[in-house]
Amino acid sequence: MEIVLAIVVGILYTAGVYLMLRRSILKFIIGLIFMSNATNLLVFLSAGLVSGSPVFVDGEKINAEVMADPLPQALVLTAIVIGLGIVVFTLALKYKFFELTGTDDLDQLKKTDN
């Protein structure tokens, strides 16, 4: 199962990088979402997958050796929240930019460069 998820991480990164290199800002944002999901999955995988042994179950004593590691799950939850906030902010920024200039083309963004 881990190997499948590892491949999925790879595919998501590939798709993310590909989309980020496109000219459209919207595609860039979608690429960002892909990359952020790939990263979240990577962090989630970092402790390995354990099936059938959730972390906190009231009233039952489970051997810590076989229990799923709770930390990466907590990390991923935090990372998802942060990712959500960032994606929304990026979308809002893109929206305001589009309202102001009417362009979605990254090649038009050359004014502040030099």
Binding site: L84, G85, V88, L91, A92, Y95
Partner: peptide, 10 residues
């Protein structure tokens, strides 16, 4: 609050 703000800002 944050959810509402997200939705409203878009």
């Amino acid at each position: 609050g944050v959810t509402l703000m997200f939705i409203f800002s878009l």
